[in-house]
Amino acid sequence: MNKELLLTAGIHLLVAIVILGFILFVVMYMIWGLRRIMGFMQVRIGPNRLGWQGLLQTPADALKLLQKEDVIPKGADRWLFTIAPIIVFVPAYMVYVVMPFGDGLIAKDLNIGILYVSAITSIAVIGIVIAGWASNNKWSLLGAFRAAAQLVAYEVPMILALCVPVIFAGSLRMGGIIEAQEGGWFTNWFIFRGYGIPALAFLIYMAAGLAEVNHIPFDIMEAESELVAGFNVEYSGMKFALFFLEEFAAAFTICAIAVTLFFGGWHAPFPFLGENLTGIAKMAVSLFWFLAKTAVFVFVLMWIRATWPRVRVDQLMNFGWKVMIPMGLFILLAAGTVVTLGWVKL
């Protein structure tokens, strides 16, 4: 009995370590990719010196951040200043518990999967607000105010948009939502079904998701041209690195959830590209498709970052409350109607 318990605990620990390693690896190469892609789009070079094509640049940067002096401002609330980056990072990590990397590659397929994701990610806001307040700096406090207002406004349309695939699949479970898009062809993905209602939900989800991970065009809480760096202006060294890590890990999460809910998750777009496999091969191929689809969205995010301007605060709030939420309510109603009347084949 005790031996079994120890074994399960050991396996869980191993999975947790593997996922943490995965996050660190992905974030490092997302940062490298972002710098190279933005460099390419803005007709400059980007980091290309350390290692082949600059591949070792971000690990070197991370090492540099580790060695930096950990500055805590004199007027800051020491205790809250220290735990704020942890409150921000831990939820971004915990979300990966239900991340469906591939067929059988999901740490814990909770039957409230998608609800778990939105509940856990909503905690990160508290960390951001605390960071801004504890720094005892006017810029960071303004950033914290903006963060609170923005994230509360955009969480509602995000959850409304998430409800649409849930209604279509009839399940909150990540595995269940992916199974509902099974069948081999990409036309079974929710984005191509249901009279375009899931497609609209996808657009709302992505816009709210960009606001949620404070990505351009909605990064007003750290708008460097007006607020210096917003809520994290006083942070340096490892604490700053944790904020940075969270931002990229959360961006990857947004893309991965979009793939899971609207783009068939780990399923291949054509049946002959890996539907008839079994065992390890199926696992590997499904992992490949999941990561490939997610990478496309990560690229789109970088593209947006390189090309779009930032919105103003009032535009952001108006757009959130007067456009996104009514649209979210509308698609929720539409999806419910369509499914209840049986107009879609489920």
Binding site: L115, S118, A119, I123, I126, I130, L141, F145, V152, I159
Partner: peptide, 26 residues
């Protein structure tokens, strides 16, 4: 009661407490 548990986190710990913090700081 998993559903209630995560609704509790989402609504109270996540959203309402952020508004509390907002008001207290403001």
């Amino acid at each position: 009661a998993q559903f209630v548990a995560f609704i509790q986190i989402l609504v109270y710990a996540g959203a309402i407490m952020v508004l509390f913090l907002f008001v207290v700081m403001l």
